[in-house]
Design a binder for these strands. Structure first.
Length: 211
DNA sequence: ACAGCGATTTGT
DNA sequence: CAAATCGCTGTC
């Protein structure tokens, strides 16, 4: 399997507000090429948007060496350590000097256990992502990038949408203590690899995987 | 300096 | 439901 089978999303895709990019990233592919290892990839099934204007965003309070990447150019990865234990992977969106990004919360990996990357920390662990990836461009040259929705995923989404059933669910964000009312989390209803249920979400779990 | 705490996960 | 575990942030 060649890298060319996974074309990289370009900067224009990310140069838009996070709440616009986040739902469109669901169904796209996260691809990882580490030295001496097999290519790893999976379908993004859950995302969250963050913006400087709301208090849950790391860049809301102030700009610092820690969150500098979030203020930088779109199309780069913003990776941080949380709870001293787990890494969280974001893609920077919108424009320079405005903290904006999309948190990748869950990925469905074909051939792997369903819950292998069913959460921000698990996802980072599975793909071998840590702070060294912070600031890297989302491109094959970085060994880590995002690819557009493959035809099979596009077909699945269209089929369900045509049946009057939107496979993309929108809820409040998870694990934050501020701005919980903001519905900036999106996930693929048909996936069993979603991290967890948001408070109040009664959506039934559905069979059939999106990959 | 120092206590507090987090965009999580796991086990009791 | 609490521990694990690190480093940033605000305060003393």
């Amino acid at each position: 399997m060649n890298d060319s089978a996974f074309p990289s999303l370009d900067r224009a895709f990310f140069a838009r507000p996070a709440e616009q990019v986040a739902p469109e990233l669901v169904g796209c592919l996260l691809v990882r090429r580490a030295p001496g290892e097999a290519l790893r990839w999976g379908v993004v099934v859950e995302t969250e948007a963050y913006a400087q204007s709301e208090p849950a965003c790391h860049g809301h309070r102030r700009r610092s060496p820690q969150n500098e990447t979030l203020f930088g150019e779109p199309g780069r990865f913003y990776v941080y350590l949380t709870y001293g234990v787990h890494h969280c992977v974001n893609v920077v969106t919108d424009r320079r000097d405005w903290a904006n990004g999309v948190l990748l919360r869950a990925v469905a990996v074909p051939g792997a256990p369903e819950r292998a990357a069913a959460g921000p920390g698990l996802l980072a662990r599975w793909f071998g992502i840590d702070r060294r990836h912070d600031g890297r461009l989302a491109a094959p040259a970085s060994g880590l990038w995002l690819a557009p929705r493959p035809p099979a995923v596009v077909a699945l989404l269209e089929r369900q949408r045509a049946a009057g059933d939107d496979p993309l669910r929108q809820t409040g964000r998870i694990g934050i203590s501020q701005a919980q009312e903001l519905p900036w989390r999106w996930y693929l209803r048909t996936s069993r690899s979603v991290s967890r249920r948001a408070p109040g979400d009664r959506t039934p779990r559905h069979d059939g995987l999106a990959a």
